[in-house]
Computed example of a mutant assay.
Amino acid sequence: MTAWAAAAAAAVQTATGLLHLSEATAKAQVSQVMAKLGAASRVQIAVLAHQAGPE
């Protein structure tokens, strides 16, 4: 496992713990957001969110 993959896995585990979601639910939600935005990765989602700015 690369350092990047390990960091991504840790981020998912942290988010699921904070939000009281299962890992499968979190991954499914991210996949749905990616599909709706036409994003190829979570990084693209973050870039799009940053560009949109706060509402």
Score class of each variant (00 low, 15 high):
residue 30 V to M: 08
residue 29 Q to M: 08
residue 10 A to K: 10
residue 49 A to Y: 02
residue 23 E to I: 11
residue 37 L to T: 12
residue 26 A to N: 10
residue 49 A to F: 04
residue 2 T to G: 13
residue 6 A to K: 12
residue 23 E to P: 15
residue 49 A to S: 05
residue 28 A to R: 09
residue 35 A to G: 03
residue 11 A to H: 03
residue 19 L to T: 15
residue 1 M to P: 07
residue 27 K to Q: 01
residue 44 Q to A: 02
residue 17 G to N: 15
residue 43 V to T: 14
residue 13 Q to R: 14
residue 18 L to D: 05
residue 9 A to F: 00
residue 53 G to S: 12
residue 13 Q to A: 07
residue 21 L to W: 15
residue 42 R to I: 11
residue 46 A to Y: 12
residue 16 T to Q: 14
residue 13 Q to F: 04
residue 3 A to L: 13
residue 20 H to D: 11
residue 24 A to I: 01
residue 19 L to E: 08
residue 17 G to I: 09
residue 45 I to N: 03
residue 30 V to C: 14
residue 34 M to N: 04
residue 8 A to M: 04
residue 42 R to S: 10
residue 11 A to Q: 13
residue 2 T to Y: 12
residue 40 A to I: 06
residue 33 V to E: 02
residue 48 L to T: 13
residue 8 A to P: 02
residue 36 K to G: 11
residue 31 S to P: 06
residue 24 A to D: 04
residue 45 I to L: 01
residue 48 L to Y: 15
residue 33 V to G: 01
residue 3 A to R: 13
residue 51 Q to E: 11
residue 42 R to F: 09
residue 11 A to G: 00
residue 53 G to I: 13
residue 28 A to I: 00
residue 7 A to F: 00
residue 52 A to C: 06
residue 49 A to E: 02
residue 33 V to M: 05
residue 36 K to P: 02
residue 49 A to M: 02
residue 39 A to F: 04
residue 46 A to F: 08
residue 31 S to Y: 11
residue 14 T to E: 14
residue 2 T to M: 14
residue 55 E to K: 04
residue 27 K to H: 02
residue 21 L to F: 04
residue 41 S to E: 08
residue 54 P to K: 13
residue 31 S to W: 05
residue 20 H to I: 06
residue 19 L to A: 15
residue 36 K to A: 15
